[in-house]
């Protein structure tokens, strides 16, 4: 079990309200990702759930039990920190065993659990090393091992992969997803990387300045961003946001069109533009096209490698049914 509910939770540091009243429910077994720009309060929210910070007001309910006043260790949650927070003086074995030792479990039982966790995380060869003698990925696995052995009702991850290099990050991402599939335990995962959010989440919570902008599955957020912020934040490369007369023609203050929803046509396109920088990835080509009447350059994504270069003229047509419309208040217009 591991349903987590926040009711009207707020958090202030001194006079600064970092989290205005916030409601959120994370269902049992769900993989929820908090995503948002730096400083938006993701970590703070996670630490509130863990109990490392006290709520200024509001309630946190885990499995129908109000845990707002319950100390962190009694909430049955395990957390994996960005800096791993391994105990530097203890071997990997002792690190993983530490929570069990604190529970005063007997040694035979501890050994069994540690071995099981180490086996599943491929750490058997490193049990007697100190954290300082491990690579970043191995340290991360030890931190996860330390979380697993406690058998928590939910895992909390605070940007666990941001200290790893790109290749390792993709690998660890898969491992965490495997783990989630195997354990079926609630996981809350904080990241500022929207690609990580899109690939991992069952449910994405987009935050800005402590306010939830939208909650939904990755595809919901992709298809129907509720407002301009989510539209600009979710998706890579970013959605093109166009204001002015072109938006007015669609009856909106701003329209948004994703780079992959603009087609390059031979002739008779809606817009004509000049190619600025183009990025050739092999599988895709990203073109930054300057169009008269549109202030920012448009990002256009085409499948495959197209032969365009700086200064070429291209004809563009947005797919009409993929245009997102936003009103003056920034909210989506259906």
């Amino acid at each position: 079990m591991g349903q987590i509910k926040l009711n009207q939770v707020t958090k202030s540091f001194g006079d600064v309200e970092v989290i205005p009243p916030l409601d959120l429910t994370i269902e049992d077994g769900e993989f929820a990702v908090f995503v948002g720009p730096s400083g938006c309060g993701k970590s703070t929210l996670l630490r509130l759930i863990a109990g490392l910070e006290d709520c200024t007001s509001g309630d946190i309910v885990i499995d129908d039990e109000n845990v707002t006043q319950v100390p962190p260790s009694k909430r049955g949650l395990a957390m994996v920190f960005q800096s791993y927070a391994l105990y530097p003086h203890m071997s990997v074995r002792k690190n993983i065993a530490f929570p069990l030792r604190m529970e005063k479990m007997d040694q035979a039982e501890i050994d069994k659990k540690v071995e099981a966790a180490a086996t599943s995380l491929n750490l058997m060869d490193y049990l007697d090393r100190k954290p300082g003698q491990l690579s970043g990925g191995q340290r991360q696995r030890v931190a996860i091992g330390r979380a697993i052995v406690r058998n928590p009702s939910a895992f909390l991850f605070d940007e666990p992969l941001s200290n790893l290099d790109a290749a390792l990050r993709v690998g660890m991402r898969m491992e965490i997803l495997e783990l989630h599939a195997k354990l079926q335990t609630t996981m809350i995962y904080v990241t500022h990387d929207q690609v990580e959010a899109m690939t991992m989440a069952d449910k994405i919570v987009v935050l800005q300045a402590g306010v939830i902008e939208q909650v939904g599955s990755p595809l919901e957020l992709y298809r129907k961003p509720r407002n301009l912020f989510v539209a600009g934040f979710i998706g890579s490369p970013k959605m093109n946001l166009i204001g002015g007369d072109i938006a007015k023609q669609h009856g909106a203050e701003t329209i948004g069109i994703r780079p992959e929803h603009i087609d390059v046509v031979a002739s008779g396109g809606m817009w004509e533009g000049t190619v600025g920088v183009s990025e050739h990835l092999g599988s895709d080509t990203f073109m930054h096209v300057h169009v008269d009447g549109i202030e920012d350059s448009l990002t256009v994504r085409s499948i495959g490698d197209i032969a365009v270069k700086h200064g070429d003229k291209v004809q563009l047509t947005p797919r009409a049914d993929e245009i997102h419309k936003f009103g003056a208040d920034g909210l989506r217009i259906e």
Partner: peptide
């Protein structure tokens, strides 16, 4: 002293003495 290690220990159930 690393504060995150402390917090990890708190979550692991270590009291002030531990």
């Amino acid at each position: 002293e690393d504060q995150q290690q402390k917090e990890a220990a708190i979550l692991d159930g270590a009291g002030a003495w531990n």
